[in-house]
Simulated scan of single mutants.
Amino acid sequence: MSRSDPARVFGQTAETPGRAATPPIDGPVPSVHLRLKQATRLDHETVDQAMSGFDLTDRDAYGAFLQLNHTAMIALRPHWRAADAVDFDALVEALAADLAALGLRPSPPADPLAGRIDGLGLSYVVRGSRLGSRILRRRVGPGLPTAYLDLRLGEPWARLLDQLTARGTADPDDTTALIAGARATFAVYERLARPMAAAA
């Protein structure tokens, strides 16, 4: 089975154009975005490694990839921000359409998540994952449906970065819940990906 490049499966693989690169350790205090990125780096890499087991040229493996993403979005839905609902509902609908085109049904719902996940931290992970969608789209086998990977979100990534900045400006110390929310979101994908990728 061929495998995807794990460094590019889950998006957020390059600096956003027009945004400053990582400053030196003895430089200015890192932005909220940079602190979040650094704090979740290992979580991101773990998910990328787990997701790399899906061969998107294979119909069955690609179907499992879509089911995983659908299951994750449904599990996370109670924790979405209202501001994300339109875009995230569109992702769920696109996933359902692709699954239907493959003659597949969504996987059974995952167990409910314990506690509350910070919505902005969740949004950082889900919206960040879309940055790699064009790369993944090129790896999909011919004739397979791609509504999910083709979908462009209405809210740009730069707006999410502005929201992170605004939150850091309002309370520079309020990063614990944000980081925990992002890590919890990565954990949902990792927990679902490992057994499904192994089966695929």
Rank of each mutant, 00 (worst) to 15 (best):
E15A: 09
G141E: 05
R105K: 08
I135W: 01
A101V: 04
L131F: 01
N69F: 03
G132W: 00
A200E: 07
A85F: 12
T165V: 11
P108S: 10
P17S: 05
D162R: 03
Q67R: 02
L164Y: 13
D26S: 14
A83V: 15
R139N: 05
Y148Q: 09
M51Q: 08
Y124N: 12
P78E: 01
I179W: 07
A199D: 10
L113C: 06
L131G: 07
G168L: 05
L164G: 13
G154Q: 10
D58R: 15
P142N: 10
M1V: 12
A177Y: 10
G143F: 05
R130E: 02
L136S: 03
L136I: 06
I117K: 02
A198K: 00
A90G: 05
D174L: 02
A158K: 15
V92H: 09
D55E: 04
Q38L: 11
T175Q: 06
D111E: 13
L149E: 05
D118A: 12
P109M: 04
G27I: 08
L99M: 12
G115F: 11
R138E: 06
L149V: 09
P30L: 08
G181T: 02
S4W: 07
A14T: 07
L160Q: 01
P78S: 00
S123I: 02
Q163F: 13
V125K: 01
A21H: 14
A180S: 14
A110F: 03
G27E: 14
A166V: 15
L120P: 11
I117Y: 00
L113I: 13
Y62A: 01
V29C: 10
G18M: 09
R152Y: 14
D111S: 11
G119N: 10
A110H: 05
L122I: 15
L122N: 14
A114R: 12
A147L: 00
V140W: 07
Q38E: 08
D5E: 07
R3C: 06
M73V: 05
R127Y: 03
A7N: 02
T146S: 08
T40N: 12
R19I: 01
F186G: 06
N69R: 10
P30R: 06
R3G: 00
R8G: 01
G53P: 02
F88I: 01
A147S: 01
T71C: 00
A72D: 03
G168M: 04
A83N: 14
L151M: 10
I25C: 03
G53H: 02
I179C: 05
R167T: 09
A20K: 14
L131I: 02
A187C: 00
F65R: 00
D98N: 08
L153W: 04
E190D: 13
A114K: 09
D43N: 12
V9R: 06
Y189S: 09
P106R: 08
R134L: 04
Q38D: 15
P108H: 00
D174A: 12
G154S: 15
P108T: 03
T13A: 07
G143Y: 13
D173S: 15
G18Q: 00
A72N: 03
P156W: 09
A114I: 07
A180Y: 15
R159K: 14
A21T: 08
V9M: 06
L56K: 05
A64H: 02
Q12R: 14
G143E: 15
P17V: 15
D58P: 07
A158L: 07
